[in-house]
Design a protein around this nucleic acid. Structure first.
Lengths: 212, 212
DNA sequence: ACAGCCATGTAAGTCGTTACATGATTGC
DNA sequence: GCAATCATGTAACGACTTACATGGCTGT
C-alpha cells in the first residue's frame, strides 16, 4: 500500500483535495512514485474508511463543492509505522533488460536503436532529477518550505539531507543506465565490425523446433 | 505482455512443460524476470489460444500426462516483433526510496537499519548476478549451450555478449544501490553527530494539522 | 461564448500475489 | 510406506492502466 503512504506523506504537509494531490504526483512526487487520479480518488476514500485521513466538504464558487483531506493522528502513526517497517524491494522485472538478453534475434541496427532509446530516456530523467535535487538542496520548493516550517529548527538539515540523498541516488541510478546503454552501443559497434558486412540482417533469428 | 515473451524466449531453446518453465523462472530467469507457476500455467493457455505456442500431451509413468509446449512460427515472429519494438520503461515506483524521503519521521537508529537492509539486499544480488554473468561468459549454463548449438557459429560471440552485457548491467545497478545505502549510512552518522545526543528519538515525527 | 482549468468519479481489463487444492511418480 | 519431486490447476484479491463520463468555475 505505498500509494496510500505517499498520499499520507503529502497530506502531512497540509490538507489537500484529491485534485491537488494528483497534481503533486504529476509534478514532484512523480519522480519517486507515479499514480493517476483514477487511482488516487478511490484510495483517498479507502484511507478515509480506515480513519487515516479525514475529509471536509468545502464549497467552491456558488454551487460546486470539493473534498479537502487532512491526515489524522492514526494516519501519522501509520506513516511512522510504515517508515519503520523493513521490506525487501520487489523482484526485478525489467522489460528493457529482458529484451536486451535476446538482441541476437534482431539486426545490429535495431539493437542500436533500443540502446539509443534507453540512453535518451535516462539522460532526460537524470537531468530532471538533478534539477529537483538542486531545488531541494536550496530549499526552494513549496513543499520543502512548508515541511521545514512545521519541523523544529534542529531537524531542518536532516529533513533536507534525506530528500537530497534520495534524488541524488536517483540521479546516480539514471547515470548507471546511461552508461549501460553507452557501453551497449559500443558493444554493437564491436560485434558489427567483427561480423564483417551484414547490413540489416538479424544475427540469429528465433526458429521453431525441427522447422529450422 | 512481458511474461509471455519471457516464456516464448525460453521455449525457443527447446520444448518444455509449464513445470520446467516455472523452474527456469525460479533458477535463472528470476534474475531478470520473476513469475509464479500460478501465473505461468494460465499464460501458457493464453499463448496457445493465440497460436504462439503449441501443446502436445505426453504421458509420464503409466497413468499421468503432461503438456509439453513448443514455440510456433507465429510465436517466433512475435518474439522478433517484441524485441524490435521500442517501449519506454515504466514510471519509477520504488517504495525504498519513497520511504527514505521521509526518514526524518523516525530515529537515526531506524534510518540506519533501513539503509543496512538495503545494502545487504543489493550486495547479495550483486554477487548472484556477477556469478551468473561469469557462467554465461564461460558458456557453462545448460541454456546458453543449447542456444549456441542452435545458432550459426558466427553469431556465437553476439549471443553470449548480449547476455553478459545484461547481467553486468544488473551488477552495476546493484553496485549503485549498495553505494547509495553506504552513503546513506554515512549521512545518518553525520546527522547524528551534528544533532548531539538524541538516542532513539524521531527527528521530526509526523503530526496532524492544528493538533501539534 | 469559449477555452482552460478545477474537481470527481466509474468501468473494464491487465498483471501479479497469496492461498487453496489435487494427485501421480520416483527413489529410498 | 514415505518423502521429495513432478505436474497442473483455481480463486480471491490488490495494484495499476486506459478509457469513459460529467460538470462547475474563471478569465478573456
Amino acid at each position: 500500500m505505498s500509494l496510500g503512504h505517499a498520499l499520507l506523506a503529502l497530506l502531512e504537509t497540509r490538507p489537500m483535495t484529491g485534485y491537488e494531490l494528483a497534481q503533486q504526483f504529476d509534478r514532484s512526487v512523480i519522480f519517486v512514485w507515479h499514480a493517476r487520479h483514477s487511482q488516487i480518488y478511490p484510495e483517498l476514500r479507502r484511507l478515509e474508511g480506515d480513519g487515516l485521513v479525514r475529509a471536509e466538504t468545502a464549497s467552491r464558487g456558488t454551487r460546486a463543492t470539493k473534498r479537502v483531506y487532512s491526515i489524522t493522528q492514526e494516519g501519522c502513526a501509520e506513516l511512522e509505522r510504515w517508515v519503520t517497517e523493513v521490506r525487501l524491494p520487489t523482484r526485478e522485472r525489467d522489460a528493457g533488460y529482458l529484451k536486451a538478453t535476446y538482441f541476437e534475434f534482431v539486426s545490429f541496427a535495431i539493437a542500436r536503436r533500443q540502446f539509443e532509446a534507453h540512453l535518451a530516456h535516462y539522460r532526460q530523467l537524470q537531468e530532471q532529477w538533478e534539477d529537483h535535487a538542486g531545488e531541494l538542496e536550496r530549499r526552494e520548493t513549496a513543499l520543502i518550505k512548508r515541511r521545514l516550517s512545521l519541523a523544529p529548527e534542529r531537524a531542518h538539515d536532516a529533513v533536507v539531507a534525506y530528500k537530497v540523498h534520495v534524488y541524488r541516488g536517483l540521479v546516480e541510478r539514471a547515470r548507471t543506465e546511461v552508461e549501460w546503454a553507452r557501453r551497449g552501443l559500443e558493444l554493437v559497434d564491436r560485434l558489427e565490425a567483427d561480423a564483417g558486412a551484414e547490413p540489416g540482417l538479424a544475427v540469429a533469428p528465433p526458429v521453431p523446433p525441427q522447422a529450422g
